Simulated assay, not measured.
Amino acid sequence: MSWDAMLVTRRDRGHSEGSWTKGWWALFLRHLEYLSALAREGHFGRAAAACWVSQPTLSDGIRKLEAEFGVAVVRRGHRFEGLTPEGERLLNWGRRLLADRDQLMAEFGRTSHEGLTGHLRLGAVPASLPPVSLLTGPFRDRHPGTNLTVLSLTSDEILRRLTDFELDAGLTYLSGEPMAGFRTVPLYSERYVLLTPENGDFAGRTEVGWAEAARLPLCLLTPDMQNRRILDGLFHRAGVTVTPRMETNSVSTLCSHVRGGRWASVIPQAWLGLLGVPPGTRVLPLARPAATSTVGLVILDRDPPPLVVSALVHVAEELDLQRSLDNLVPVDLTARFDG
């Protein structure tokens, strides 16, 4: 059943136009919040906890949605079994309505002397987490009335959560992933270096090839991370297939294991200036092939975008993150990449 048909059905059951009051809308939006939480959590109890209500209250709210439109929204069994096709359609509309409500409240719920307020939810791929403060810091300085949440997510999760209105913006790779329905803002080029024990196989070397690096006991991010998929592609271009001795989805875990002296890793150059070179290790530029990947912001293609999103994009476009990152790393490494 279409959304318009649902509204017609509702009116045909005897509801007048006057019943669309502020109180009805507030309750209706609250019930949509219950539905969104249930779809996100996949469990009635967890969804109720996320909405700070009891499970019977949440279940009753969803039943009222079903009664309102005369359709089944949830497939019920002994536990939550997903949404019906009508429920999925209602969920999509509901998420847009809730996002528009939040945007409207942010825009009109502030006075001119307060400046921008609101909550910015940013998802970032793990490889971009060390440099993320170079963006969030200037944003917070410009808009001190805002709050931020930064979540470590895969590139696929970022796109999904943006589509579901669970994020406002993402910091991710801008190549290799479908971007239909999104706007992008390039921020910097990710460059790659080998982090290896100081007295390891390449002591005395000034650079190393990808094929040589593949022979080391490597610790890399897991294959669901786009950084790892990029690295696999670069190793493939060098004619080798890499088999890591250890995999992790945590940047800090990766660095701590290399610091222990048993593993080496291929890491983005941007990490060096912000995390430093771990004691007992050294950094070598990777050559043959030389490669970079573009990292940037991705947001939903909405017109107009939410105020906090517009403000973030404006700050990002003013920054020169590439220069900031290059100023944080050793000069000789930058010279090798530029040369």
Results as ranks from 00 to 15, higher is better:
T154I: 11
P178L: 14
R161W: 02
A180F: 05
L148V: 13
S155D: 13
D156Y: 11
G137D: 13
H143I: 03
F165P: 00
A180G: 01
M179V: 11
T172Y: 09
L174R: 00
F165V: 02
E157T: 14
R161I: 02
Y173Q: 01
S175V: 14
T149R: 02
D164H: 15
L148W: 11
T146H: 09
E157V: 13
T172G: 09
H143D: 00
S175L: 05
R161P: 11
L135K: 02
A169Q: 01
R161C: 03
F139N: 04
L162D: 06
T149P: 08
S152L: 09
V150P: 10
G170E: 02
L171S: 01
L167N: 12
F165Y: 14
D168F: 06
S152D: 06
T172S: 10
T149C: 03
G181M: 08
R161E: 00
S152E: 11
G181I: 15
E177T: 14
T154M: 04
R160T: 13
I158Q: 14
L135I: 01
R142Q: 12
P178I: 13
S152P: 01
L174T: 02
R160Q: 08
L171K: 09
D156E: 13
R161Q: 04
G145N: 05
D156S: 15
L162N: 04
D164E: 15
G181H: 05
E177I: 12
S175P: 14
S152Y: 06
G181W: 08
L148Y: 04
D164K: 05
G181V: 13
T149H: 04
S152M: 07
P178E: 15
R142M: 01
L167Y: 10
L159N: 07
L148G: 11
D164N: 06
E177N: 06
L174I: 07
L159R: 15
S155T: 10
L159A: 14
G170L: 06
G145M: 06
L135H: 05
N147F: 08
A180R: 15
R140W: 03
G170N: 04
R142P: 00
D156R: 15
P144L: 13
E177D: 09
L167M: 10
L153A: 05
G176M: 07
L174W: 05
D168A: 14
G145R: 01
R142F: 02
T146Y: 03
T146S: 11
G181P: 10
T149D: 09
L159D: 09
T172A: 13
A180I: 14
Y173G: 08
D156I: 06
P178K: 15
L159C: 07
E166I: 01
